[in-house]
Simulated assay, not measured.
Amino acid sequence: MADVQAGTVKRGPLSRIVDRLGSGAVQVLMILIGLFWLVPTLGLLVVSMRDETANNAEGWWTIFTKPAELTLSNYASLLATGFSASFWNTVMITVPTTILVIGIAAMAAYAFAWMDFKGRDPLFLVVVGLLIVPIQIALIPIATLYGQAGIFGTIPGVVLFHVAFGLPFAIFLLRNFFVGIPASLLEAARMDGASEWKIFSTVVFPLGKPAIASLGIFQFLWVWNDLLIALVFADASNQPMTKALQSQMRQFGTNVDIIAPGAFLSLIIPLVLFFAFQRYFVQGMMAGSVK
């Protein structure tokens, strides 16, 4: 209390270390950590561009002394297996799912945060309770329902499943962010005659960009990297990349020259997406986790 009254704030050991090292040294350290984190990605890229004989004989790091071993023939062989169709299947599953989850969850979160209706709080508790429901218990009932509806093994069926199980977390995250928006902004918009949809689209949604971008990254990664739902609900003609790679592993065993380029292609898109929206990521996660 004496430190606070005297106008000083007690600093932690991490802050004192940063002061002693200097901001430049800390930045260099963070860059080195980032580069170290990217080493597995670099190794996967190198392995995907070497033939099977070279990969079996030596480690990927020897490429720095033998750059002539790099080739794109592995990617040509991968595309010859029909992997490009699996890539577009993944896109057609992931992009609509992410858009639908963000759109539906944002509107529901606004309703839970700023609209008064009967049963709002109990209904929100039900949504929160759905967060603990494991996906596995719904596989057989929904597979039966899909068979009766005629959408089993189709891309819309996979999208609907991901949307249904992605909404609880999405609503919870966005609602916790939206309630932090100053009520005076919404009241001023209502006094100007704005409808609820106008307030949502012009005030709440733009202010929620950090949380929405964070949610978009999470949802995209979950669906892009999903294997369980693809194995159950996608047939051979609609399989995404994860199922295609799994089938290659079962069919060819240790055929790294096929699996490595496929794994790198499935990795590079989420990596680019994360780096593109990383400035929103921490801000959105912190905002959605403290309410």
Rank of each mutant, 00 (worst) to 15 (best):
M30E: 05
A76W: 12
S73W: 15
V26W: 05
A80D: 15
K209G: 13
T97E: 01
T41K: 04
F87Q: 03
V101P: 04
I102Q: 05
D257I: 01
G150I: 10
G59K: 01
R175S: 07
V282D: 09
R20F: 06
A189K: 05
F220T: 00
I268C: 02
G150S: 12
F169D: 00
F277H: 05
M191A: 14
A68P: 06
L185G: 06
L70T: 01
A109I: 06
Q283K: 11
G43Q: 04
K243P: 07
L131H: 06
L44P: 15
N56V: 08
F233R: 00
F275Y: 12
S266Y: 04
G208T: 07
Q248E: 12
G147F: 11
I229C: 11
F64Q: 00
A236D: 15
F274W: 11
M285C: 05
S289W: 04
P182R: 04
G43R: 06
K10Y: 11
K243T: 10
L174Q: 11
K291T: 12
I102R: 02
A2G: 09
L38V: 11
P156E: 01
I181N: 07
P13V: 10
V47G: 00
I155Y: 02
S77D: 13
L100M: 12
T71F: 13
L267W: 07
M286C: 05
K291I: 06
G262H: 11
A2R: 10
M107N: 12
L131E: 10
F152Y: 13
I33G: 12
D51G: 08
V158R: 02
Y110Q: 11
Q251H: 08
A260M: 10
G7D: 15
G208K: 01
I217L: 13
L215Y: 03
I259R: 01
T242V: 11
A263R: 08
Y75C: 12
P40C: 04
N238R: 08
N56Q: 13
A164T: 14
S289R: 09
S84M: 08
A85W: 02
P210Q: 09
I142Y: 15
F178S: 07
P67M: 01
G262E: 09
L221M: 14
V204E: 11
R190A: 11
I258H: 14
L167D: 00
S266V: 09
K209N: 13
L245T: 15
V163S: 08
G153T: 03
N238H: 08
F83I: 04
A189I: 08
I142V: 15
N176E: 09
